Simulated assay, not measured.
Amino acid sequence: MTYEEFREDVLNGIKTFQNDWREGQKVFNYIDSKYHVARKVQFDYGVDCFYRNDLIDKFIETAYKLL
């Protein structure tokens, strides 16, 4: 899977989540549930988009590198 395919999967996947969730929260939860690397990105790499939407791109990039 290329990075673009991964990113597209994440951005399409979050469309199924609740509308009252923040975008970063959706991205974090989607990657955590499907790829199981969100906690590693958060704790080992210090990138956490759950509360910070400005870190979404970096979070997706870091998750992809781990995979």
Rank of each mutant, 00 (worst) to 15 (best):
V47T: 09
N12A: 12
F43K: 14
I60A: 07
K15E: 13
Y45H: 15
R22T: 11
R52C: 02
F28K: 03
K26T: 05
T62G: 04
E5R: 14
M1W: 13
D9N: 12
Y35H: 10
A38R: 02
Y3F: 15
Y64F: 15
D20S: 06
N29H: 11
G24S: 10
I31A: 01
E4R: 13
Y45L: 10
V47Y: 01
T62L: 04
G13A: 09
I56N: 06
D20V: 10
T16H: 03
Q25G: 04
Q18S: 13
G24I: 10
K34S: 00
V41T: 07
E5Q: 14
D57Q: 09
L11K: 10
G24T: 07
K40W: 00
Q25F: 07
K15A: 11
G13N: 04
L67G: 08
Y3W: 05
F17I: 02
D57W: 02
R39E: 14
A38P: 00
Q42C: 12
F6G: 03
M1K: 14
V37M: 03
L11N: 14
H36W: 10
N29G: 01
V47G: 03
D44W: 02
Y3S: 05
N29D: 09
D57E: 15
R39V: 15
K65H: 09
N53Q: 06
E4D: 14
T2I: 09
I56R: 04
K26V: 05
Q42N: 12
K65E: 13
F59L: 04
L55S: 06
M1Q: 07
D44C: 00
K15W: 01
Q42F: 09
Y64C: 12
E23G: 00
Y3R: 06
Y30A: 01
E8G: 01
